[in-house]
Write a protein that binds this DNA or RNA. Structure first.
Lengths: 227, 227
DNA sequence: CGGATGAATTAGACATGTCTAACATCCGGC
DNA sequence: GCCGGATGTTAGACATGTCTAATTCATCCG
């Protein structure tokens, strides 16, 4: 039966590839056979074969690396939308924490019907951000996937508004969540301790030391002081 | 990647077959190659091939017709549990009607992780019945799948408590729902109009005429008059 | 008893998606 | 200018799950 399969060539595997290509390229990373293999936990030949299929189906172009065609972007955005709506829904309706929702959404995103997607969207009041601050692509219309700047390298003394936190490392997410570092909050940036030490920030009067890795997972903007 | 796949031999297709065998046999219908092909919308040879696989995996025995082994029942109940929990969850959290939830649960049931299943179960307060009145198998322990008696053939003048309504015909479900015929409600049974006419029942002062087909979709028990 | 009928299986093909092993290609350094 | 390593592709195999066409098998009826 394979209830999972959708119209045309969209299968769960195809959706995963398209989504991953989209996310890699919007993160500014090179989209190569090797990168996709690493990301999707498959072998390089598997990626090669799939790229051939996607290319035949006019979902990707292959020049230097791989990039999505217009139609490929459209399909990728559909998957990303379902993923982020599900994350938001699971957090809202079941109180799941932001480090748990990603894995679950990963499983469910290929099995979400259009109808259920619409119902969830409506029930949530047409949200524009998921729990990590990632923008939810609209059902139709333009989408902005920009990441802002990473916390790493932010000059001491500036005020930094957290906008997105990468959902790739679930343990790091839990840790950051416990410290209160979530989208919408503003950090007072302190000093980078020397020789790869902690990055000091202040949030609501509390001093927080963040390891190198964490500062590359938090994105946002520097708030200009008005005076 | 195929995120859908589970441990061992449990795939979405295997789960569908096991579930269907379980449901057919608990409805008292013969579980034959043909019946499964009809039910699952696949060809007979497909069923033959799958029965060989399930038989090799000790999930079914093949004598006269097919029946589940102990392990087969266990796996089938896991799928049925996920399906009915999902139906209940979708009805509760999104206000979906009982004629919509079946189709959606059908899609999601193969992608539900153990963790999410447990979260949903807890959030719903460990429900024992889905919106159609179908019993939700417990995570561990005995399960009773009995159907009670059909409304069809209930003698005039008796009082009939609705316990389950078959979810197989979505349009019929919607119709019955509009008339107020749902699990828990008690009907005063009237006459069967002759020559295959309507079956008359009374619910909360209102007279309802039910076509033949409907009376075979509603199950429950006759309430003994006390006096 | 013999043939028609229907149900089930076997045979063979195909699509999807994965793997390992072998080959190709390209690019930097000497 | 050539060699070695990284990167990518081809070749070939396998698992899953489906299909159609052909065959077997049982059964019922005249």
């Amino acid at each position: 039966m394979s209830n999972i399969r959708r119209v045309g060539t969209m299968t769960a595997a195809v959706e995963d590839y398209l989504k991953t290509i989209f996310l890699l390229s919007t993160r500014g990373e090179p989209v190569t056979t090797g990168a996709l293999a690493r990301e999707l936990h498959v072998s390089s030949p598997s990626v090669s074969a799939m790229m051939k299929r996607l290319s035949d189906g006019h979902l990707v172009d292959r020049g230097t690396g791989v990039h999505l065609t217009e139609q490929g972007v459209r399909e990728a955005l559909r998957v990303v939308r379902r993923h982020r709506l599900l994350e938001t829904f699971l957090a809202q309706s079941l109180g799941m924490s932001w480090d748990e929702v990603h894995v679950e959404a990963e499983l469910l995103e290929h099995a979400l019907s259009e109808r259920l997607e619409a119902r969830i969207d409506a029930a949530l009041g047409h949200p524009t951000r998921d729990p990590h601050g990632d923008p939810i692509p609209p059902a139709a219309g333009a989408h902005d996937e920009s990441w802002g700047r990473p916390l790493a390298g932010t000059p001491s003394g500036s005020r930094f508004r957290v906008e997105r936190v990468s959902d790739r490392d679930s343990a790091a997410l839990r840790y950051l969540g416990e410290k209160g570092i979530r989208p919408g909050f503003v950090l007072e940036v302190g000093d980078q301790e020397p020789y790869g030490g902690s990055f000091m920030v202040r949030l609501g009067g509390e001093q927080i030391a963040l390891g190198q890795v964490l500062t590359h997972l938090v994105f946002g903007t520097i708030i200009e002081e008005e005076s």
